[in-house]
C-alpha cells in the first residue's frame, strides 16, 4: 500500500506487448471478418469465413485429429508418467537407490530436449519406407509383412505421429510428478505399510491424491501444447498424406502462406485461440475448486 509510483517500470513491457501481441491479435480477429489475399484491399464480409469454416470438412477433420493427438500428447503420457514416476520414486529409489531413479528420469526426459526439427529427422528416417530402420528391424525378425510406409499411408500416418508424440512427451510428466512426490511425507507411506496396504493401494490412495496439483498442471499444459501442435506435423508429414494428419495450426499456416487466403486462415486461428483460452480458464476453475 505504501509503495506507490511503480507504474513507470511497466512502460517498456506494455509498449512491447502492445506491439507484438495486442495489435497483431486485434488485426487477426479483424482480418477474420474480411476477404484478403495479403496484398490487395481487405474486403469486409462479415461472418462468411466462419460459416464457410463450419461447413469445411477439412476443418472438422483437423479437429478430430487434434482429439487423437490430445490422447497421445496429454492423456497417455500423463497416466503412464504418473505410474512410472510412482514406481521410480516409491520402488526403484528405495530398493535400488536414488541414482537409479535419477538415471531413469534423465533417460525418459531426453526426447523432451531434442529440437522438434531433429525429432522430425530422427523419426522420418527411422520410419522411412525404403531405408528406414523400423522396416529393417521387422524384416530381420521375420515380421517383414508388417513393414509399412508408416508416415506415408493415410491409414497409419496419424497413428505413427501419435506414437512419436507419446515418445516426445513422456518425460515431462515423469519429472513433474517425481518432483511433486518429494513433498509427500514419508510417514504417510510408513503408516500405510503398517496398516497392511499393498503398493497399488498406496499408489491410488496416497500418491495420486497428494500430487493432484501437479496432475492438473501437467494435463492442462500438455493439452494446450497438443492444441497448438505445428512443428512435428510440419517436419513429419506436412499434414499429409491426403490431409490424414492435418491439424488446425497447420491448416491456418497453409491458408496464410500457401493459398494466400489470409481471411480464412485468420478465422481458423481465431477459433483455435478462443478454444484454447476457454479451455484453460475452465481448467483453472476446475482446479481451484477441487484443490480447496
Amino acid at each position: 500500500m505504501r509503495r506507490k509510483g511503480y507504474w513507470p517500470f511497466l512502460i517498456p513491457g506494455v509498449l512491447a506487448s502492445l506491439l507484438v501481441i495486442v495489435v497483431p491479435l486485434v488485426m487477426t480477429v479483424y482480418t477474420s471478418f474480411t476477404k484478403w489475399n495479403g496484398v490487395g484491399e481487405q474486403r469486409w464480409i462479415g461472418f462468411d469465413n466462419y460459416t464457410r469454416l463450419f461447413e469445411d470438412s477439412l476443418f472438422w477433420s483437423s479437429f478430430s485429429n487434434i482429439l487423437l493427438l490430445i490422447l497421445a500428447m496429454a492423456v497417455v503420457p500423463t497416466l503412464l508418467g504418473l505410474f512410472l514416476a510412482a514406481v521410480l520414486f516409491d520402488y526403484v529409489a528405495k530398493k535400488f537407490g536414488n541414482r537409479w531413479a535419477s538415471l531413469f528420469r534423465s533417460g525418459f526426459y531426453l526426447p523432451q530436449i531434442i529440437p522438434v526439427a531433429v525429432t522430425g529427422i530422427l523419426w522420418g528416417w527411422i520410419l522411412h519406407p525404403e531405408y528406414g530402420a523400423l522396416n529393417r528391424i521387422l524384416d530381420t525378425i521375420g515380421l517383414g509383412s508388417l513393414a509399412h510406409n508408416w508416415l506415408g499411408e493415410p491409414g497409419s500416418a496419424l497413428y505413427s505421429v501419435m506414437g512419436i508424440m507419446i515418445w516426445v512427451q513422456l518425460g515431462y510428466p515423469i519429472v513433474m510428478f517425481m518432483a511433486g512426490l518429494q513433498r509427500v511425507d514419508p510417514e504417510l507411506y510408513e503408516a500405510a505399510d503398517l496398516d497392511g496396504a499393498n503398493w497399488w493401494q498406496r499408489f491410488r490412495k496416497i500418491t495420486v491424491y497428494l500430487i493432484r496439483p501437479e496432475f492438473y498442471v501437467v494435463l492442462v499444459t500438455t493439452t494446450i501444447s497438443a492444441l497448438k501442435i505445428f512443428g512435428p506435423i510440419f517436419v513429419l508429414t506436412g499434414g499429409g498424406p491426403s490431409n490424414a494428419t492435418l491439424v488446425p495450426s497447420y491448416f491456418a499456416y497453409k491458408n496464410f502462406f500457401e493459398k494466400a487466403q489470409v481471411g480464412y486462415g485468420s478465422a481458423i486461428s481465431t477459433v483455435l485461440t478462443v478454444l484454447i483460452i476457454v479451455l484453460s480458464f475452465a481448467f483453472l476453475r476446475l482446479q481451484n475448486r477441487s484443490l480447496k
Binding site: 495489435v23 497483431p24 491479435l25 497448438k228 505445428f230 495450426s249 496464410f256 486462415g265 486461428s269 483455435l272
Partner: peptide, 8 residues
C-alpha cells in the same frame, strides 16, 4: 497460439 499472431 503463435498462428494467431503470425500473419500481422
Amino acid at each position: 497460439p503463435q498462428e494467431v499472431l503470425v500473419y500481422p
